[in-house]
């Protein structure tokens, strides 16, 4: 579309050649080719991580603002890929969840293979009232369960959101922890409990 506009404008101007050359040059493709050359496997961080998957590509190409129809279709795909626990139990131990929420480890080249990662939650969210060192990239989750209750639907929503945030908002800044294998089923259950268990300090008065 932009290229076509340039062509039409070009017919009427002398700067035509330069403008067209500018239009044709794909810096994004050049950047990707460059990164594929330059980034190397170290530890568990393998070189193939630099390849974008379909969802990342759509978000990258649209500056995180994909057309609505595409976003809805891809969110549906992400939603269908969420694996809920076969036993139907979605709430684990909130105390273990709090520990996980504190840990910013996982998936870097300095993390070891096979060692479970952390939830990285406090990096971006306010959660428990006792923790004053919290980030602001994501919304506050304090009182999460108090405001929403912990009905099966709310549990399912919280589990799904942690498993794959992109099923709810395609270009969300939040990682897809379950989808990426960064958190296990039982770890996600513990985080659901941190958010929803009435005993969790998140829901204290």
């Amino acid at each position: 579309m932009t290229a076509m506009k340039t062509t039409i404008l070009c017919a009427a101007t002398l700067a035509c050649g330069a403008a067209l050359a500018e239009e044709v040059r794909d810096y994004r493709a050049e950047a990707i080719a460059m990164m594929k050359r330059d980034f190397k496997t170290r530890g568990i961080a393998t070189a193939d991580r630099v390849h974008e998957d379909g969802l990342q590509a759509i978000c990258n190409r649209t500056s995180d603002h994909p057309p609505k129809a595409i976003a809805e279709r891809l969110e549906r795909d992400q939603m269908e890929s969420i694996k809920y626990p076969p036993d139907g139990k979605l709430m684990g131990d909130w105390k273990a969840g709090e520990k996980l929420a504190q840990s910013g480890r996982g998936m870097t080249w300095s993390d070891k293979a096979g060692v479970p990662g952390g939830g990285n939650c406090y990096n971006c969210h306010q959660i428990g009232p006792q923790e004053t060192s919290f980030g602001t990239i994501g919304p506050s989750l304090y009182q999460f369960g108090k405001l929403r209750g912990n009905t099966p639907d709310v549990q399912k929503y919280a589990y799904g959101k942690i498993y794959n945030a992109k099923a709810f908002n395609l270009c969300s800044a939040m990682p897809r922890f379950g989808h990426a294998g960064a958190l296990t089923e039982s770890q996600i259950k513990d985080l659901v409990a941190l958010l929803l268990d009435p005993q969790s300090p998140v829901n204290s008065k």
């Binding site: 810096y27 994004r28 050049e30 950047a31 460059m34 990164m35 991580r49 630099v50 990258n60 998936m107």
Partner: peptide, 17 residues
Amino acid sequence: RIGREIFDYRAGPYDFS
């Protein structure tokens, strides 16, 4: 311009740029 593309490029297991 290539640097700006790298800055905005989301990839990897956490989808971070």
